Simulated assay, not measured.
Amino acid sequence: MNKWKVAFLLLITLVIVAIVSAVYFVTKPMAETPNPTVRELPNGSHLEVHTTPKDFENMANRLIESSMKTSKIPVKMYVGQEVTLQSTLTVFEMDLPITMTFEPIIEDGNLLLKQKTVEVGMLDIPPNTALKLLKDSVDLPSWMVIQPKEEQIYLNLTKMNVPVGEKLKGHVQAKEFNLKENRIILDVIIPTK
């Protein structure tokens, strides 16, 4: 057998192995991701903050940005009639924009984002696969828990430390998240000690 035939067969074999590996990686079964335990908030002064979706969006993006200093893949949150997350996934050295929309639900003071739609470039992939790719590709803050099997993202607000002063960290929990009426109410707890 001549060396060109051997090289061609080797190349074809490598391409097939790469495709099978990629398909396996994307379609392998997903383990269920439980909701994180809700942190008991400390005693302290409670401030009820009424805010708009745009102000919540600005605060969330600042917290995501400060939590993801080591990650080179940006994640942006937009809050309008629904919550939208935008990022970029790198697949086979190609950057694909990803846009996901969610319906927000309050659960124990935290925010549960139930996935409604997903767009990954021109690809038509299932929502749970898109969340799995995002989970595997992006190093998100510890308070953002992606649950691909459940097709949702759990924002553990009670785990976040919100700066309220030079050396003072507060805690936050959601009281109301009504995007149709442009009404978001957060309870900010400033610890006594």
Rank of each mutant, 00 (worst) to 15 (best):
M1S: 13
N2T: 07
K3F: 12
K5F: 10
L9R: 04
T13A: 15
V15A: 15
I16T: 13
I16C: 14
A18K: 07
V20T: 11
S21Y: 10
A22S: 11
A22L: 12
A22F: 12
V26D: 03
T27W: 07
K28P: 04
K28V: 03
M30Y: 06
A31N: 13
P34C: 02
P36Q: 01
T37P: 07
T37H: 08
R39E: 14
N43I: 00
G44S: 02
H46S: 12
L47S: 05
V49G: 04
V49K: 05
T51W: 02
T52K: 09
T52D: 10
D55R: 13
D55Y: 06
D55W: 01
N58M: 12
M59P: 00
A60E: 11
A60K: 04
A60W: 02
R62Q: 14
L63R: 07
L63E: 15
S67C: 05
S67A: 14
M68F: 03
K69D: 09
T70Q: 14
S71H: 04
I73Q: 14
P74T: 00
K76S: 11
M77V: 15
Q81V: 03
E82D: 13
L85G: 08
L85E: 06
S87P: 00
S87W: 02
T90W: 00
E93S: 14
E93N: 14
L96M: 10
T99K: 12
M100R: 05
M100Q: 11
T101S: 15
F102H: 07
E103T: 11
E103H: 13
N110I: 01
L112Q: 15
L113K: 02
Q115G: 11
Q115S: 11
K116Q: 13
T117K: 11
V118S: 15
V118M: 01
E119C: 04
G121M: 02
G121P: 07
L123G: 03
D124A: 09
P126C: 00
P127Q: 03
T129F: 12
T129Y: 14
A130D: 10
L134W: 07
L134R: 06
K135P: 04
D136H: 05
D136W: 04
S142W: 02
W143A: 04
V145R: 04
P148R: 00
K149S: 10
I153W: 05
I153P: 12
I153H: 04
N156P: 08
N156M: 05
L157I: 10
L157S: 08
T158P: 08
K159Y: 09
M160S: 04
N161R: 13
N161P: 02
V162I: 15
P163C: 04
V164W: 01
G165V: 01
G165P: 07
K169T: 13
H171R: 13
A174R: 07
K175P: 03
K175W: 02
E176Y: 07
E176N: 13
E176M: 12
L179A: 09
L179G: 09
K180G: 08
E181A: 15
E181Q: 14
R183E: 10
R183L: 10
L186A: 08
D187G: 01
I190E: 06
I190W: 06
I190P: 00
I190R: 03
P191V: 02
T192F: 14
K193C: 04
K193G: 09
K193V: 11
K193R: 11
